[in-house]
């Protein structure tokens, strides 16, 4: 083996509520740290260059392509991955809606779609199917589950908006 590793930097990330401090090289992406170092393989790698959305996670509540983030840039941030949204026995509403609407096939784009959908709803710009389609277009699904994904998101949006409507009446 050749010369020693370049200096690593200590980084603290709060991942799914747990604080993690690790030494990372400056060129390690958030996605690779999640997958290879923390074994949180729910965030997927589909392109490694910001073109597919499979790696979408929530950073301080906002959806980001984790393959385009260097881990050192996110020191001190809160990261939520699909594993942190819910587990099989206690699914997040968006995860449950995806199962109900068969909003996936191979499941590989799915964690990214779900994190992206959760982030998108928080952004508050999506109301109609048309808007959902536009704002979800950074998340590719080669299995073509798009119409079912939109239905799942619409259902979660409707549930979320329902109490608001009642309160307004």
């Amino acid at each position: 083996m050749a010369q020693a590793q370049a200096a690593a930097t200590s980084v603290t990330l709060t991942v799914n509520g747990e604080s993690k401090t690790l030494d990372v090289a400056p060129w390690e992406t958030l996605l690779d740290v999640l997958r290879e170092r923390l074994h949180l393989t729910g965030a997927k790698k589909g392109c490694d260059q910001g073109q597919c959305g499979a790696c979408t996670v929530l950073v301080d509540g906002r959806r980001v392509n984790s393959c385009l983030q260097l881990a050192v840039m996110r020191d001190g941030c809160e990261i939520t991955t699909i594993e942190g949204l819910g587990e099989p026995a206690s699914l997040h509403a968006m995860q449950a809606a995806f199962v109900k609407h068969d909003a996936f096939q191979c499941g590989y784009c799915t964690p990214g779609q779900i994190c992206s959908a959760v982030g998108m709803i928080r952004e508050g710009h999506a109301e109609t199917a048309e808007e959902i389609r536009e704002l979800m277009s950074g998340n590719l699904c080669r299995c073509g589950a798009y119409t079912n994904i939109v239905e799942a998101i619409e259902e979660v949006l409707a549930e979320r908006n329902a109490p608001k409507l009642e309160a307004a009446e």
């Binding site: 729910g42 594993e83 949204l85 995860q95 449950a96 995806f98 199962v99 996936f104 964690p111 779900i114």
Partner: peptide
């Protein structure tokens, strides 16, 4: 296998 897929497991 839906619950496993949507929870990243």
């Amino acid at each position: 296998d839906g619950p496993l897929k949507v929870s990243g497991l």
